[in-house]
Design a protein around this nucleic acid. Structure first.
Lengths: 268, 268
DNA sequence: TAATATTTGTACGTATGTATT
DNA sequence: AAATACATACGTACAAATATT
């Protein structure tokens, strides 16, 4: 009845050894040839087994070096339900920084790359723009403790520029926050936002930037901010690798503090 | 300079043909041997290329039949920020049903499987239980239009049983909702909840139940409900496949209706 | 029902390329 | 420069799943 393929049996055996701690986190596995000798299997079969483990993000292979058990990064937790009228003004950048600081980590953000673009239909639709209308796009890479953490792109209607919010075109951070800047210059107040949380396979750029495997998955969160008239005033699309990011959503009053120790640990 | 491996070039070529519509959604790809002849590559190389495409969820292979371009399921969107004091009482089951009905889909839920258990540390910690304390566990499978949609497990402190909420032990749906039942029997009112959103590779059970590949990823959402004293009264863990589920989070008042057409389409 | 053809899955072997030490 | 270890690519053979005859 042992009809499970050999490579799966080998993968299962290695997985058990890793999860029970027999093979330590961060340590190096035997080489493919050694494993082949141990399990009496060909190197290709061993490679199939290891491929399963990489898919489970249990190990990672490094050409020229070997195969190593992955160490789980302490996940960064982002609160999606920060009050839009308090604190940092609900700017997504500000929320990000405050959350990071709360965990005593060192955040960095690259200067925005600014582009003018006719957006894809999915973007234009969320901003309720007619087809072919340009947008201002501000793209940033974000790191925590030097680790690539997220890729973020914010889209604003071109109209905002004509109405005076010209600093959206400068490739510099808007220190007081884009939301406050827009309130001061063109009297647009953010009264709320909606996040749309999805997950999808990472594309090549994301794989390279985050240093994740070619079968890795990322969160893609679309945050549409609405002004006092109920119209969308900004769309922010942020991509987070799932191996180092989690999110919390608070509903109701008087919730106890979300101690981050409460997070699910991986050793289920 | 063409240092990109052959199998990646082939995968890229096929991907482009699929995304431009040259190969229709749902249609069958040529067999591995035919592709090998077309690209002048060995069957194993073709298989490596196809493995990349399955990782991107662009194609799926069926033994004995062939390889087919995947048809994307119309994603189901769940609102994580339903008001806990209105409507269906904030029961997670109720939220699920109302959301599904809003899309004119047919939901089904299996009768709960009830267990008594000493929970894993991650569960006990979230319910603030001492180590070794038992919980009541209610597990359900959920479908929409016959498609497996989510796996849900709710955990309640055993204490609730002793205080009179004995219907938690019956393997039947609590029609009025567990939240209302607890309010009526042991005077516990849910005043809010916190969702903790994570993503991880699917385990074997989940792969089998959802019919997803062995490198598929699932959302795992931990919902901790709090009572009027600020204590956790229930933990609900729900697993959703990422290929057919999305979530929205509303913050602020007067948000426009989330027309589901606004969802991101896959043809980016 | 049974046999057969087709197609993907598993397993092996070999050779060479590329990255790292 | 040399050794080591994973990555790519080819070949072969048989098993298992599916559809057809």
């Amino acid at each position: 009845m042992a009809k499970t393929p050999m490579y799966q049996q080998i993968a299962e055996d290695l997985r058990a050894q890793i999860e029970t701690g027999k093979i330590a986190r961060g340590s190096q596995l035997p080489t493919e040839l050694e494993l082949g000798a141990r399990y009496n299997a060909s190197r290709n079969t061993i490679r199939d087994a290891i491929k399963r483990l990489t898919g489970l993000q249990l190990v990672e292979t490094r050409p020229g070096q070997g195969t190593f058990v992955t160490i789980n990064i302490d996940p960064f937790v982002t609160d999606l339900t920060a009050d839009p009228k308090t604190g940092f003004g609900g700017g997504e950048g500000a929320t990000y920084l405050s959350q990071v600081s709360a965990k005593h980590r060192r955040p960095e953000t690259t200067s925005p790359r600014v582009e003018l673009q006719i957006p894809p239909t999915a973007i234009g639709r969320r901003l309720r723009l007619a087809a072919g209308v340009q947008v201002v796009l501000r793209h940033q890479q974000r790191f925590i403790d030097g680790i690539p953490w997220s890729l973020q792109t914010s889209y604003y209607p071109m109209d905002f520029i004509h109405r005076g919010a010209t600093r959206l075109l400068t490739a510099e951070d808007i220190k007081e926050g884009a939301v406050r800047y827009l309130a001061e210059t063109i009297s647009l107040t953010q009264t709320g936002y909606r996040d749309w949380v999805t997950a999808r396979p990472a594309d090549d750029n994301e794989q390279k930037f985050f240093g994740i495997g070619h079968d890795a998955v990322v969160f893609e969160i679309f945050r549409t901010a609405f002004d006092q008239h109920g119209n969308p005033m900004r769309l922010t699309v942020t991509v987070f690798p799932t191996d180092r990011n989690q999110f919390i959503v608070n509903v109701g009053d008087n919730l106890p503090d979300p101690r981050y120790e409460e997070g699910p640990d991986e050793s289920t």
